Amino acid sequence: MSAVLVLEDGRVFRGEPYGAVGETFGEAVFATGMTGYQETLTDPSYRGQIVCMTAPHIGNTGVNDEDDESERIWVNGYVVRDPARRPSNWRSKRGLDEQLASQGIVGIAGVDTRALTRHLRERGAMRCGISNVDGADADELLAKVRQSPSMVGADYVADVTTRRPYVVRADGEPRFTVAAIDLGIKRNTPRSFARRGITTHVLPAYVTTQELVTLAPDGVFLSNGPGDPATTDAVVQLTKGVLDAGIPLFGICFGNQVLGRALGFGTYKLTFGHRGINQPVQDRATGKVEVTAHNHGFAVDAPLDRVSDTPYGRVEVSHVGLNDDVVEGLVCRDVPAFSVQYHPEAAAGPHDASYLFDRFVALMEERNA
């Protein structure tokens, strides 16, 4: 049995079936991490995307029951070069191929992922389709790809947000309470808060400002998530309510884009985005370079060369991506709010950015002093 991957510009890659049998469509992107594929697959930020892994060997450590970042796999499809024939790790419970098949995730193996990655870097992320059914026809698949929805204008937050609030308790004596707006939150975020004595109330994305204020949190957190930030008008209004109330606010990834919009900045789609665990970012205040974990295809359009005057006072770009000068963080000088475009909670990845949770704690301490 063979499999085929077709990009919307007509480029065709052939390989072997991997995971579930069927057809799938989404935005073709590449992720550069050499490890952490289980976290990537279960990160809700990848909703709507077909992920090509640039590392050639995938599945070596199998799949365990502890490292999932959510309750399911969220990618629309999966592309690998050399899948492990047999997983080898003391924590492994099953193989990756088995896990993908059990959750209906269509994939393709044996692909020249280096060539696919170079194509996406040159042409940009684009729609694609995978078919690993008998008799799959590349021309027919291409027609379906070109009829599939674009990531621009895609609203996936409703798909990934929690349906009901839940609480993750602080480890030991609680110091603060944080309301986390679930735009596609990963499990390691509440755990990161818990280790710092913070109880986290994880709330649906469309919680009202009144419901949020009634909870009386010490801080508000805007999580990562998928889709086009231009579709998040309700969450932007909620964020404005938090800024108006003077509640300390911390956003990451999609949350950075939401805060940017609330402050009056625009957003735009990157050519091929940043995905992986080895992205260099500079903290402009200290000059320190952090190696960070990313998954974003959109960015905030804010000036790098000056302080911006916004409805909420002065705002600066706090962090910048060293590969392409993309805005990687915002800090408000007149209200207690800041954000970064990357993932300080990354489980399988660098921990250079974990200090940002402590910075958020400091904001809450200052407000409660």
Rank of each mutant, 00 (worst) to 15 (best):
G251S: 04
I252A: 07
I252W: 02
I252E: 09
I252R: 06
I252C: 07
I252V: 14
F254Q: 14
F254N: 13
G255C: 05
G255P: 02
G255A: 02
N256M: 14
Q257L: 09
Q257D: 13
Q257H: 11
Q257S: 08
Q257W: 09
V258P: 13
V258C: 11
V258H: 15
L259K: 10
L259Q: 10
G260P: 11
R261L: 13
A262C: 08
A262F: 11
A262I: 13
A262Y: 14
L263S: 06
L263E: 06
G264Q: 04
G264I: 02
G264V: 02
G264F: 01
F265E: 08
T267E: 02
T267P: 07
T267G: 04
Y268E: 15
Y268V: 12
Y268W: 12
K269W: 07
K269N: 06
K269M: 14
K269S: 08
L270A: 00
T271G: 06
F272Q: 05
R275A: 15
R275Q: 10
G276L: 00
G276H: 00
G276W: 00
G276S: 01
I277T: 14
N278M: 00
N278G: 01
Q279S: 05
Q279Y: 06
Q279T: 08
Q279M: 03
P280Y: 03
Q282V: 14
Q282F: 01
D283N: 13
D283I: 05
D283E: 10
R284T: 13
A285G: 02
A285P: 00
A285L: 03
T286S: 15
T286Q: 10
T286E: 07
K288I: 07
K288F: 01
K288T: 11
K288N: 09
V289C: 01
V291M: 00
T292V: 04
T292K: 03
T292Y: 01
T292S: 04
T292P: 01
A293H: 03
A293K: 02
A293D: 03
H294P: 00
H294F: 00
H294D: 02
N295V: 07
H296D: 08
H296M: 08
H296C: 03
H296I: 03
F298L: 07
F298Y: 15
A299I: 04
V300A: 04
V300S: 07
V300T: 13
V300M: 07
V300N: 06
D301M: 06
D301N: 14
A302E: 13
A302S: 07
P303F: 10
P303I: 15
P303A: 12
P303K: 10
P303Q: 11
L304A: 02
L304K: 04
D305P: 08
D305N: 11
R306C: 10
V307D: 04
S308K: 12
S308D: 14
D309H: 15
D309F: 10
D309R: 15
D309K: 12
D309N: 12
T310A: 08
P311A: 05
P311H: 08
Y312I: 10
Y312K: 12
Y312P: 13
Y312D: 09
R314H: 14
R314C: 15
V315K: 12
E316D: 15
E316T: 14
E316F: 11
E316Q: 11
E316I: 15
E316A: 12
V317Y: 10
V317G: 13
V317K: 12
S318F: 03
S318G: 05
S318R: 05
